[in-house]
Write a protein that binds this DNA or RNA. Structure first.
Lengths: 174, 174
DNA sequence: GGCTTTTAATTAGAGTTCTAACCATTAAAT
DNA sequence: ATTTAATGGTTAGAACTCTAATTAAAAGCC
């Protein structure tokens, strides 16, 4: 499409060791490929669910509530894999849209349970097939075995990363 | 850790066809796994680069500029895979940090070229090893072949998604 | 019982990214 | 040549997400 403006080539990159120069190219960077894939998923799904008034931010929480209705906000955060302030705004949004309600706990007045409204629950039948469709389109041309492999590799990476996070290790800045 | 608050089980989910109910579980959702993996990558990398004053938002653009210095802002957007308003704020941030400069084109007064400063260029030697490290930690326990497979599968998905986007297809809302 | 610590939720403030609308400039068309 | 189209960049406004600090309630401790 376009060529480098001044013909400048990445000479410095080639002077670096292979293991490092590899990641200089976005094409070879797992992070880059993950970002593009995730964004593609997210926007494609949102394009569909938005016709029912559900944003991608709401979607993740909605799906968890379909699996387990009535968790506390903290439990919901953990399940969905988001921080709590994020959950606060997501739940605000769900409540505003009439998809869920906040229900103060009776035995512990700090806690708040999140419950789907009938409307929120009813969307499951409409919205779940949309993810199935997005998954199908995204993985078109891949075998079931390949998709399974992809999931396995991603879970492995996520597990590695969870461990890294736990041991706050690496470079402690004193 | 905790059990469903009221013992409610996802009965509706089980009533759905297998292909759909599969995606009801985040564990089986490619989108969910992609999100977690991408976020893990992004935060782990940012934790490192931030010690040199480089945020994850800047990082993506910086890497591209190391490969090709002096592109127009639009070219940069395409290469990095971001929309142009995003590029505007990212470049603003790079300029503010003294890592790049805006250089108006002489032959076309609409265009602006983005060029690294010596400081921005010098960071390559420091920052590139950090991605290598993050990639290593993330893929620990995977063989080289598996990592290659992961990249191949992700590229395949991204290619599928690019096609979907092109043909604006699906459900045109008139 | 009263003090401290922990837990749950929220608020405040910021960063990244998007879409839509808008200018300025160039290219194309009549 | 003057009008119309496309192109490049920007601004406006919003959504999603995060970290850090705050408030309220419960649990633990002497």
């Amino acid at each position: 499409m376009t060529v480098p403006v001044d013909g400048h080539l990445p000479l410095e990159v080639q002077a670096l060791p292979f293991e490092i120069s590899t990641y200089a190219q976005p094409e070879n960077s797992i992070g880059y490929q993950l970002r593009m894939a995730f964004r593609g998923f997210s926007t494609m799904l949102e394009r569909k669910t938005s016709t029912h008034g559900v944003s991608s931010g709401q979607w993740r929480f909605l799906r968890q509530l379909w699996i387990e209705d009535g968790p506390t906000q903290r439990e919901l955060s953990v399940r969905v894999g988001m921080r709590e302030p994020t959950t606060v705004v997501a739940v605000n949004s769900l409540v505003k849209s009439g998809l869920a309600v906040r229900e103060p706990s009776v035995e512990d007045r700090r806690k708040v349970h999140i419950r789907l409204t009938p409307l929120g629950r009813s969307l499951q039948a409409t919205l779940l097939p949309m993810v199935a469709d997005v998954n199908d389109r995204a993985t078109k041309g891949l075998t079931k075995a390949e998709v399974a492999t992809l999931l396995r590799l991603l879970r492995h990476i996520n597990s590695n990363m969870a461990h890294e996070r736990d041991q706050i290790g690496g470079d402690p800045v004193p």
